[in-house]
């Protein structure tokens, strides 16, 4: 048993690699700070566009969304981070990762927000319009506040997915939590940093999972 601890939860190794892991955690947090607000922003734009566009426009948008969703997120990430330089566009690594993952996650935020807008009875539109509110004011003051509340659990669920998604950044050499754990594992030839990183992810995300459950959220997110 103590051998098991020495191998997988080695206190010395964990202490020595904690600096690296913390730096990695900070990069992960930065990635989240780009991807979550970015995804929400563009997702909201997508949802509004699909709501307000004429039927043919909404249909083409839904095909576009599905096209993006057909890419595994890792493929989208590799394509953007390794493909853009060939176009002489070389964003800093964190930004490249941010762009790729924002594109991916905004399609999910968009669908969720659109479902929220559609969940509001047409009578709410009629009531607002009858008081002289325009489309923008109706959306902003009447429809969105109710619609967002209706899909709050799903928004939280997708935020969980977005945080998990940032671990992909390690593949394109962004020094995030997972990447730094791999580095520390290589240095010490001991898996304790990896275990510690996994525990950190759990410590970060388990409360979010519990919160989503409390909100009555479903695990059922689109693919």
């Amino acid at each position: 048993m103590s051998e098991f601890f020495q191998t997988f939860l080695n206190p010395g190794v964990m202490a020595e690699s904690s600096g690296l892991l913390l730096r990695g955690l900070w990069v992960t947090v930065q990635a989240c700070l780009i991807v979550i607000p970015g995804g929400l922003f563009f997702g909201a734009g997508l949802a509004l566009a699909q709501t307000l566009a004429p039927a043919w426009g909404a249909r083409s948008l839904s095909w576009g969304v599905d096209l993006i969703r057909a890419f595994p997120p890792l493929v989208l990430l590799v394509l953007i981070v390794h493909g853009l330089p060939f176009l002489r566009i070389e964003p800093p690594p964190l930004l490249g990762v941010g762009i790729a993952l924002t594109i991916n996650t905004s399609t999910y935020y968009g669908e969720i927000l659109r479902a929220g807008i559609l969940s509001i009875e047409p009578t709410q539109w009629e009531a607002a319009r009858s008081t002289g509110l325009g489309t923008a004011a109706t959306l902003r003051h009447v429809i969105l506040p109710q619609g967002v509340r209706n899909v709050l659990p799903d928004l939280a669920g997708n935020t969980l997915e977005a945080v998990k998604l940032t671990s992909l950044a390690s593949v394109v050499a962004l020094p995030d939590l997972l990447r730094m754990a791999r580095v520390a594992q290589g240095v010490h030839f001991n898996p304790s940093p990896l275990i510690l990183a996994a525990v950190l992810y759990l410590a970060l995300l388990w409360p979010l999972v519990r919160l989503i459950r409390r909100m009555g959220g479903r695990a059922v997110l689109p693919a």
């Binding site: 969980l160 998990k164 390690s170 992810y201």
Partner: peptide, 8 residues
Amino acid sequence: RAMPPLVL
């Protein structure tokens, strides 16, 4: 549900 698949 909390664990990123890549980490696992």
